[in-house]
Design a protein around this nucleic acid. Structure first.
Length: 272
DNA sequence: TTCAATGTTTAGAC
DNA sequence: GGTCTAAACATTGA
């Protein structure tokens, strides 16, 4: 499932390829994905030039030349593929024809969406979501994280890290990886974290996300980049999906528990 | 056949 | 109000 590094990868690749190009046609095979009246959606999108592509949290935002923007959420299984001959998983639900080439939007489980909004309203909508800071942004300092934990007061650290209103962009995979990096048990209460542990969490967030972006994301499940290729970070995952396999640090089998309804992987020795 | 997987939203309990 | 849980969404694969 696309989390921050995967969405960032898609954004970077699409920027290279379709910035300044126009959407000449669109084929909508699954209307449910489009959160706007279809006729209006078509009318707004057709002929529009893609002026900018942005990311906030796990959202992808296309700013069009006519004052409208598309807000895309890929949720669990969304794929945006811009390469002839590369097939995604399932059937393409939306096909954008962009200056002769095709951008395929797949979404096997159909949880994702495309919203149509006025570009000037995008900021307001994002504000309504109450997203936390961007983990790779300049204002997300170690001090900021310490302050955020203090304001939140209590809660299990993994759930807090995955809370998009606390910090934007971490999902189940990267939250688990960050906590392994920091040597912290996913169920630890944030009120009991030491200064040093907060420092390690902060460092883990920054380093792991940056490394994952460099590898074009990871993700289990169906994630691929816009070329239809799997992310290169999968082999670097330390705990996610490794139940029963030896911890890279101490060889103890990785344990899996359920936390907040989500599969949670950790090393019972290294993470306390 | 049933269940787990997954991100997010929503409803309800305490 | 914060905090937690469970269900819902859709689909596949074990």
């Amino acid at each position: 499932m696309p989390e921050l590094p995967e969405v960032e990868t898609i954004k970077n690749q699409l920027k290279e390829k379709i910035l300044g190009k126009s959407i000449l046609d669109i084929q909508i095979n699954l209307p449910r994905l489009v959160k706007a009246p279809l006729e209006e959606f078509k009318k707004e999108v057709l002929g529009a030039e893609i002026k900018d592509i942005r990311r906030r949290a796990k959202l992808l935002i296309f700013d069009l030349s006519n004052g409208s923007s598309l807000i895309i959420h890929l949720k669990l299984t969304g794929q945006l593929i811009f390469e002839d001959g590369k097939q995604g998983v399932g059937k393409p639900h939306l096909i954008y024809i962009i200056d002769g080439q095709k951008l395929y939007h797949y979404d096997l489980r159909q949880f994702g969406y495309v919203k149509l909004v006025k570009t000037e309203k995008v900021e307001g909508l994002l504000a309504e979501e109450n997203f936390g800071p961007e983990p790779l942004g300049p204002d997300f300092t170690k001090e900021k994280l310490r302050q955020l934990f203090k304001e939140r007061k209590k809660g299990k650290v993994k759930l807090i890290l995955m809370d998009q209103t606390f910090l934007a962009g971490l999902g189940n995979v990267y939250a688990a990886e960050v906590l392994f990096y920091a040597g912290i048990h996913p169920e630890r209460d944030i009120s009991k974290l030491t200064e040093e542990e907060i420092g390690k969490i902060w460092q883990g967030i920054r380093e792991i996300l940056k490394a994952a972006i460099e590898k074009r994301g990871s993700s289990v499940d169906t994630y691929v980049d816009t070329k239809g290729e799997k992310g290169g970070f999968i082999p670097l995952l330390k705990v996610y999906g490794r139940e029963g396999k030896p911890c890279f640090r101490c060889k103890t089998p990785i344990k899996k528990i359920e936390l907040g309804g989500r599969g949670t992987y950790f090393c019972p020795i290294c993470q306390t």
